[in-house]
């Protein structure tokens, strides 16, 4: 029997890694990947809690999260393509036209 908090710690570490990736990487695609990591961390938490409570709800949530993640990845990548065509760069620091 694996204690719940093991899973939760794994999930937390995964989330933190994802967050760090968002800030540390200067490649839009990698940033998006980090976001996916974060989402998966959350999924893990949900399933773990679901199992812990004996519910099926945790899995249902993950189902929806995955769907949304897929949609978001699709749109995000489309945006990246459009941005790339505009600026020929995937560096987020290159897109500063909203700067004051």
């Amino acid at each position: 029997m694996i204690p719940l908090h093991h899973y939760l710690i794994v999930s937390a570490v995964l989330f933190a890694i994802g967050t760090a990736g968002v800030f540390l990487r200067r490649n839009l695609i990698t940033i998006l990947l980090s976001v996916e990591i974060m989402l998966n961390a959350v999924n893990l938490t949900f399933v773990a809690f679901g199992r812990y409570r004996g519910d099926v709800d945790g899995q249902i949530i993950t189902f929806f999260v995955m769907t949304v993640a897929a949609a978001e990845a699709a749109v995000g990548l489309a945006l990246i393509i459009a941005l790339f065509r505009h600026r020929e760069s995937l560096n987020p620091d290159a897109f500063t036209s909203l700067k004051w």
Binding site: M1, I2, L4, H5, T19, R51, G54
Partner: peptide
């Protein structure tokens, strides 16, 4: 960002360790 990530890990770890009811094994209830 790096600093914040580290802080976050610490916070979450701290929270998790403190919450006793989470110590139970996953499959214990059902």
């Amino acid at each position: 960002g790096a600093v914040l990530a580290g802080v976050l890990i610490l916070q979450l770890a701290y929270a998790l360790v403190r919450a006793n009811e989470l110590q139970a094994p996953v499959g214990s209830q059902t």
